[in-house]
């Protein structure tokens, strides 16, 4: 039994080493590709493993949440109760920042949070992988968040005021003269810096966690399980930091939404958009 475990570890280690500099534990597709080299089926899955794991998570979340929501019991069972607690907690958090109008953003923010959280945690399961340890995944999530934020901006402010906001609310000749520069700066920040910072932060953190766990696992293989407690510690840290990263992504997206929503002090809450919202929390 001990020998078998050791062999698996060795195979996994070899499988990862075979792909250049290994930086995370081998997953099921890495191992299968290594065991059956040249198999186009496994090669395909190994190549698109992040997408496969994302689809797996997608199916898991959809199945669990729809199953919980389908019952609609007045006295909820355990599963429904967990989801309701999550929904209520998240609604409280989001409305705390965005005000009562924030309720309509709960579905997006909630999906974002739970999707990222499960993707972060998936890498902790044997033969699984965190899709968020790949930059492509986090870029996709950051782009989704960015498009949503801008869409909220256009919807809440109106296209004209949104463009005015992007142009830095120009006033006077100087403002108009600086308009192209402000537009470039704001578009760069909103459409490039925001998704870049969001995606890079998540990708860097999760891939670092995976790398740390991998290194401790490698030490376990090399030194006969001596550094087991280090790996355990790293796993606990990864559980906590995965949660923190998902929460940070959620928090920042919420704050970006609050910043793009019309406010009195911006002076463009007019017409149908003349609604008073509480001052959003500014990122520190």
């Amino acid at each position: 039994m001990d020998q078998t475990g050791h062999l698996i570890s060795q195979t996994a280690h070899a499988a990862t080493q075979a792909h250049g500099e290994a930086h995370e534990l081998p997953n099921i597709f890495t191992v299968l590709d290594q065991i059956f080299p040249g198999n186009p089926f496994f090669e395909f899955f190994h190549h698109w493993e992040n997408i496969v794991f994302s689809v797996l998570i997608m199916a898991l979340i959809v199945f669990c949440s729809v199953r919980a929501a389908r019952k609609k019991k007045f006295i909820p069972d355990a599963n429904q109760n967990r989801w309701e607690m999550f929904v209520e907690g998240l609604t409280g958090f989001v409305t705390g920042i965005l005000g009562p109008k924030g309720v309509e953003h709960v579905p997006f923010l909630g999906t974002l949070f739970i999707y990222i959280l499960i993707e972060n945690w998936l890498g902790l399961f044997p033969l699984m992988k965190s899709p968020t340890s790949a930059w492509s995944t986090t870029i996709a999530l950051a782009l989704a968040a960015t498009f949503y934020i801008q869409w909220v901006g256009i919807k809440e402010q109106g296209f004209f005021h949104y463009m005015k906001h992007m142009a830095g609310n120009p006033k006077g000749i100087l403002g108009i003269a600086l308009l192209p520069l402000m537009l470039v700066i704001n578009v760069t920040i909103e459409y490039l810096a925001v998704p870049l910072s969001l995606s890079l932060r998540l990708f860097a953190n999760v891939s670092s966690e995976d790398r740390l766990i991998y290194k401790f696992a490698e030490l376990n293989v090399m030194y006969k399980f001596l550094p087991f407690f280090f790996q355990l510690f790293a796993n606990i840290l990864a559980i906590i930091f995965s949660l923190v990263q998902a929460f940070v992504f959620l928090l920042l997206t919420t704050v970006y939404i609050s910043l793009i929503m019309p406010r009195e002090d911006h002076g463009h809450a007019t017409g149908s958009h003349n609604k008073k919202f509480p001052s959003p929390v500014k990122p520190t």
């Binding site: 979340i61 729809v66 929501a69 609609k72 989801w83 929904v87 709960v106 579905p107 999906t111």
Partner: peptide, 17 residues
């Protein structure tokens, strides 16, 4: 995931609550 959850999970759950 977002659209499916919005239609089949978030709205029903929010309505139930």
């Amino acid at each position: 995931v977002f659209f499916v959850l919005r239609k089949f999970a978030w709205k029903p759950l929010a309505n139930v609550i």
